[in-house]
Design a protein around this nucleic acid. Sequence first.
DNA 1: CTGAAAGCGCTAACAC
DNA 2: GTGTTAGCGCTTTCAG
Lengths: 355, 355
Amino acid sequence: MRQKTVRANIKDVASVAGVSTQTVSRVINERPDVSPETRKRVKEVIEKVGYRPSALARSLISQRSYTLGVVIAGLKYIGPSSALSGIASAAEEAGYALLLKELPRFDTDDIEPIFQAFLSRHVDGIIWAVSEVGENRKWMNNSFTNLEVPLVYLTMEPREDVTMVSVNNYLGGRLAVSHLLDQGYKNIGHIAGPLEWWEARQRMKAWKDVLTEAGHEIHDKHWVAGNWSSASGAVAVEKLMNQYPEMDSVFVANDQMALSVLHALNQKGLRVPEDVGVVGFDNIPESAFFWPSLTTVQQDQYRVAKVAVEEMIKVIEAVRNDLEPVQPRSILLEPTLVVRRSTARLEIIKNKGGG
Amino acid sequence: MRQKTVRANIKDVASVAGVSTQTVSRVINERPDVSPETRKRVKEVIEKVGYRPSALARSLISQRSYTLGVVIAGLKYIGPSSALSGIASAAEEAGYALLLKELPRFDTDDIEPIFQAFLSRHVDGIIWAVSEVGENRKWMNNSFTNLEVPLVYLTMEPREDVTMVSVNNYLGGRLAVSHLLDQGYKNIGHIAGPLEWWEARQRMKAWKDVLTEAGHEIHDKHWVAGNWSSASGAVAVEKLMNQYPEMDSVFVANDQMALSVLHALNQKGLRVPEDVGVVGFDNIPESAFFWPSLTTVQQDQYRVAKVAVEEMIKVIEAVRNDLEPVQPRSILLEPTLVVRRSTARLEIIKNKGGG
DNA sequence: CTGAAAGCGCTAACAC
DNA sequence: GTGTTAGCGCTTTCAG
């Protein structure tokens, strides 16, 4: 017969220490009302028998699990995984555990079982770390959203009634396109992300707005949409160069697609940045080592996620302590432009002139 | 005064339906011994009051949480995040939830609190998805490792006494170097990963072995170590080319560093693959769009992770059902070689000859 | 300062 | 088929 390892529980500790379970409870919760000797003795017994309080039993009675549910999609991509890393780090700091659920697709809409699973495990809050794509926010109007726990969203169109944290994609797009204009490029094309994505739409709108404000006309042939992948970027740049031959520069909605753009330009014997300038978006670590190195918009998903968790904790604490409820708000973090070789046209002209 | 949302519990359902809690329990567990009418009535009440069984209470009594703890590090890298994705997918399929913990560093050795946290939450098993780096396995000899739950490891030196799943890094390295020989390269250098990493050592050993078997001599100046990053690859390739000028090809321990190698070769005006051949490792999606496209070793961390979870589930089930305990074993999955332009020397010679 | 009793939400074991 | 009793491991009253 196999000996089943039975973990010590509070009763065992109590009986070995010759006290009641309440006293043990007081010791493990660091309550003041225990005599020093008793406390010491109990602590020794705890150590000796290797007692570990059950978070489960605690959660059950205190109605507080110190656990956050996280819903995410596309973990194999750098954005979501950086975000998850930020969530993990911030949750750790705040003393919360993480229950993780990865959606098989960004636009999964069978959401109810996920909430059920989290709520049945008594999470204290849910972080919705899935970007807004297509109709994947439809369920927000459903009734079951009147949850007993707070919800914080990452990366979606700001709304009055929810707490949300995101990078300001529109601003990022403006930085990119303005920079191309500053470098003297005149015919600026755009390779967009899939326009079901809020982020892709924001970046594209920025491209349109900056060009329009600068007196340029926008035509449909000036842009093409990809699906974020390098493979789609390769297709997109071919198409774009055919339909917009005068193009002298391009704002690409992410670095992966920008990589393919560089590849295609190299292959055609076009020089970057002299003949064509390229700006990406994301600043993935590799982009500094593309050929040539890529000018791109830096966004920090790790930071976004940390802020989201901090906001979540505030909301939770407010509810628990019966304070003023925290008002829902949208927080937009500012991206920055990282200038590298792929747009360094002025510098080159300067150098040639000076040489 | 704020109305606290109180969720319906099994008692509420029982009293509304006019049955005992036991009957409700039977209904939610789909037990056969309930009359159809009673079952129907109870189900209606459940629906009406929005009752959701507490997984917490269930776990407490059944000593089974259907939850797996996952420890991981370096989520922002493609390997770990793909692995996590595989874990999530396999766990989902098996009906397990995931409790996630990200280590701040790969060689974190303060491990005990992590186990404590998982065990206090009654996880049914722990997946250790942190690569073997330096001394980060020391704790395996500690006493507290005699856990009451099974443990499955990813990516470490195989051992008799543990269950472990990994890619066969040694084989991958052999594929890479053999391919360079096949293409007629004679002076094959190596840019290794940080040698504290088991994976890096395996890949390097393969490089040494294949060359030695082919009658080549290995010198210390034939290789340099990086730290996996593109930035370190840039430094490494400079150094390597200085100390090994005859080098006509290089096996680089990952794609990120290989990217920098291509960058450096381009910058020096050397042609790839004519002057220098380059093979990477990982097959990150971008590598097909490097300039030139990169020959590399394909490894599937997602798959590794799925297998690990499946193994874990087997172990758990065996223990629960008092079956023969599953013997610990090491599973090595085979990588494959993806041939692209960066090593296509023979083809070029052939084409030139044929033209 | 300490303990006894009650109960968080659920299920196993047994009775009827 | 269905209900009763006991209890998973802990904390919250409330006595003393």
